[in-house]
């Protein structure tokens, strides 16, 4: 069996079975590329997850790109990445087609109106889990472990978005730079204090 075909099938499977997205896919990816096919060692896989957390882009796509490039070069990278999103392309097309065809029906209207608050709740949950990681970097969720300067950055960012109407991407970049600058200033003060 050609390596391209094997890459394609492996990531097609990952793409088709990773319901819930994000970290739900990690055990599945591990099973396919570490345990079954040994394309990566467990150490390399852990590094890949860490880098995925630090970069934009979903873990499934990132691992497809990384493994594909490693195992079969640029063609392998493209092939594996496309395979990882192919099931989603097919399913989302079908559901979207049904939605736009039938959404004006009274019954579906009623269902959609109860679905929307649930979607807001899911977005809120994603926000809470990100805030947990941001405010408690040590993973101990307690008041005395809270990172106060990150809370300050968060509060300012909300203000900038809601009141000052900053663009979200400007806010994201600004928050990162602010954290670096804040650390630089704290070093400066520590230096002065130490003298």
């Amino acid at each position: 069996m050609s390596i391209y075909w094997e890459l394609f099938i492996a990531f097609l499977k990952i793409g088709a079975l990773s319901f819930g997205g994000g970290y739900a896919a990690v055990p599945l990816i591990q099973e396919e590329i570490v345990t079954q096919r040994a394309w990566l060692t467990m150490g390399e896989f852990t590094d890949l997850i860490t880098v995925s957390q630090m970069t934009p882009g979903p873990i499934a796509v990132n691992s497809a790109t990384f493994v594909g490039l490693r195992v079969a070069g640029p063609v392998g990278g493209v092939l594996a990445s496309v395979a990882s999103v192919l099931p989603a392309i097919i399913l989302v097309s079908c559901i979207s087609w049904l939605y736009f065809k039938y959404r004006s029906l009274a019954g579906l209207q009623s269902v959609l109106s109860t679905l929307r608050p649930a979607v807001v709740a899911m977005i809120a949950t994603a926000g809470v889990s990100i805030m947990e990681h941001a405010l408690w970097p040590t993973d101990v969720v307690a008041l005395d472990h809270m990172s106060w300067h990150l809370l300050g950055i968060f509060v300012f960012c909300v203000f900038a978005l809601v009141r000052l109407k900053w663009h979200p991407i400007a806010v994201i970049i600004f928050s990162g730079v602010l954290n670096v600058v804040a650390y630089g200033i704290s070093l400066l003060f520590a230096g002065v204090g130490g003298l």
Binding site: G127, M131, P137, F154, I172, G176
Partner: peptide, 14 residues
């Protein structure tokens, strides 16, 4: 940089 950006992402979602 990434630590700070997490707080920003949290704010965008909030």
């Amino acid at each position: 940089l990434l630590e700070g950006m997490q707080a920003g992402v949290g704010a965008v979602i909030a």
